[in-house]
Each structure stands twice: as C-alpha cells, then as structure tokens.
C-alpha cells in the first residue's frame, strides 16, 4: 500500500507529541511556580531575597501584618513569633523576630515554609531578610532568634488592609531526615 511510509511519518509525529506532553506534565511544575509568582495563587511566597530598593513610604494608609507560627507533625521544636502583629505604611521597612528552640540533645535542621493570605498580597510582600530562605541549623538545646525584614510594596491594592503571614516549621535536612525515617521505620516495625 502506498500509505505505508506516510503512516510512519504520522506515527513518528504523534509519538513526539506524546513525549512532548509527558514532558509538559513535568514542565507544569516550574510553570506553576512562575504562575504563582504572577498571580499569587495559594499565597506562595518568593523564596529569594528582594532587592532592598528603598521605596518612598506611602503614609496615607496603614496596613496590618499578622504572623502565625505553626509546627509540623513530628517536629519537637518550639517556634514563636516575638511580634504577633505590626502596623506599617506601604514602602516602610520593618523588622520582626521569631525564636526557634531545639529541645533535643542532637543537632537538627529546620525549614520554615511561608504562606500569605490573601494570596494576592504575597505579590506585594518583599522580604529582604528571612530565615525561611534556607534551612536553619540548630545545635542541641539551642534557642535562636531570627530577624525577618520586609516591606510592603506601595502598589499593594487598597482593598487589602490586613494580611497574614504564616510559617510552618518542618524538621528536615541531614540530621533530621535520619531521625524522622528512623521513627517512621520503628513505626512500621511495630506492625
């Protein structure tokens, strides 16, 4: 049949399409991050430091920023916001502090995951310094106070007068992974 070579070409193209779409599935992961940064879905926060561009302060309005601290399951640390809420003008640089205590007798690592509500506000929250940018190492029985510096963009929509920043502290990293997985294993063994 004279259609045979034609078939091959078409099949070849369709297979490429399949492979492309499989790749696209994975490409959705970074695309989603980009999408979140543009739209502020889910209040995901940019995890890099913002440039400390000094904006003129918009003194015509005050915005309240609340801080919530949460501890993930399996983390025995204590985690507290020393400042629970601040009022500030958009453009004004502010500094708050958080303490984390590692009560155990071994070194541990912690990672704080930020989230902002309303989600849209995350686009206008610029952090110049934050402990959430990387994993934090805590010595045995150590208590650390971390500063967090941020300002709100002047373009923050006027409809937003209150925003909430939440940090969930997970135990992670080299030291922690071992202990978590050991605990997990022990649990499985107890079957």
């Amino acid at each position: 049949m004279e259609t045979k070579p034609d078939n091959k070409k078409l099949i070849y193209r369709l297979c490429i399409a399949v492979a492309f779409m499989f790749g696209f599935g994975f490409a959705l992961v970074p695309l989603y991050d980009v999408f979140c940064q543009i739209t502020g879905i889910n209040g995901r926060v940019v995890v890099n430091a913002s440039e400390d561009e000094l904006q003129t302060v918009d003194e015509s309005r005050l915005v309240t920023v609340e801080f919530i601290t949460r501890i993930a399951n399996g983390n025995n640390m204590t985690f507290e916001a020393l400042t629970k809420r601040v009022q500030l003008h958009p453009g004004q640089l502010s500094e708050v502090a958080f303490t984390v205590k590692n009560p155990s007798d071994v070194q541990a690592y912690a990672q704080a995951i930020p989230s902002v509500s309303p989600g849209q506000a995350s686009l206008f929250l610029n952090k110049t310094e934050c402990f959430c940018f990387q994993q934090q190492e805590l010595e045995a029985n150590e208590t650390v106070t971390y500063p967090m510096k941020f300002y709100l963009d002047r373009d923050l929509p006027h409809s937003i007068s209150l925003l909430t920043v939440s940090y969930t502290l997970y135990k992670v990293g080299t030291g922690a992974v071992v202990s978590v997985s050991q605990e997990g294993k022990r649990n499985v063994e107890s079957l």
Binding site: N73, G74, N75, V180, S181, E183, G184, R186, N187, L191
Partner: peptide, 26 residues
C-alpha cells in the same frame, strides 16, 4: 509494638510530637 513495649521516653516522645511524614499526629 516496638514503641508500646519499648523505651518509655520514646513512647512519650511519639505521643507528644507525632511522627513527621506519617499519619501520627502530635
């Protein structure tokens, strides 16, 4: 189970803090 008949401290720790990455809550 290893936890319920093993070291008491371990048992107390699991109950108080839960186990990360599993359904065991704090």
């Amino acid at each position: 189970s290893a936890i319920a008949v093993g070291d008491i401290k371990q048992h107390i720790e699991v109950v108080i803090n839960g186990v990360g990455g599993t359904a065991m809550q704090a």
